[in-house]
């Protein structure tokens, strides 16, 4: 039982770290791009001619919601798998 649970947790953790690293990279690219490639980030964009820095900053909002919703969907599936493992233990 313990081994099954640890395997389940290992798979879950791997997915979690991938999504977390992706979310943090997406976020930290904002300050890093402003520091290292300001000439690109200051160029006018398609969005009312505002600099690209605005587009990337505003994009953080839908991306945060998207990451949360992906995580929630995965977590729901994980919980079903966990219930199945627990069910096996009871039986």
């Amino acid at each position: 039982m313990e081994e099954k649970l640890l395997n389940y947790i290992y798979r879950k953790r791997k997915r979690l770290f991938i999504i977390l690293i992706f979310a943090l990279l997406f976020y930290f690219f904002l300050p890093l791009s402003l520091i290292f490639i300001p000439e690109i980030m200051n160029k006018p964009s398609f969005l009312f001619n505002l600099p690209w820095a605005w587009v990337y900053a505003i994009l953080q909002f839908p991306m945060t919601w998207l990451f949360c919703s992906i995580y929630h969907r995965k977590a729901k599936k994980d919980e079903q798998e966990l219930d199945a493992i627990k069910g096996e233990d009871v039986n």
Partner: peptide
């Protein structure tokens, strides 16, 4: 402030 909730939720 907003993105910090990703860290709270995931970790």
């Amino acid at each position: 402030f907003l993105v910090s909730y990703n860290v709270v939720l995931f970790l």
